[in-house]
């Protein structure tokens, strides 16, 4: 789900009380497509045995950008421009939105 202003149709993330562009309070939750593209990527380097992991910024198909991780592939192989799709995974035992490479990409 992602927030959208009814009057403008504009989406935003993270969730707020007001649309950060217009100040409109007419916000509603709508289903998100889950589709996005990697805007930037870095790898957080850990000392072994802890595993390094990637941090990405994903441009969502709806417009907003969010931080996440790309899972299911080596962090080194995550490239800017990679089409990705969201899923829920537990990180630190809490549910989090992560992304995996879009099938066929």
């Amino acid at each position: 789900m992602i927030q959208r202003s009814r009057s403008t149709g504009r989406h935003h993330f993270y969730p707020r009380e007001l649309d950060p562009e217009t100040g409109a309070a007419d916000l509603e939750w709508t289903p998100a497509s889950g589709q996005g593209t990697v805007y930037s990527v870095t790898i957080v380097r850990k000392k072994p045995p802890e595993e390094s992991h990637c941090i990405v910024l994903v441009d969502l198909a709806e417009g907003p950008r969010m931080m996440s991780r790309v899972v299911g592939m080596a962090a080194e192989d995550v490239r800017i421009g990679l089409p990705v799709r969201a899923r829920i995974e537990r990180l630190d035992d809490r549910p989090a939105i992560v992304f995996e490479a879009e099938h066929g990409s």
């Binding site: 930037s40 990527v41 870095t42 957080v44 992991h53 941090i55 910024l57 931080m67 996440s68 991780r69 990180l91 630190d92 809490r94 989090a96």
Partner: peptide, 15 residues
């Protein structure tokens, strides 16, 4: 952002 465990603030500048 915190849940993804970036290094603050280095990962932001790295991005």
């Amino acid at each position: 952002e915190d849940i993804y465990r970036p290094i603050a603030p280095a990962s932001s500048y790295a991005l």
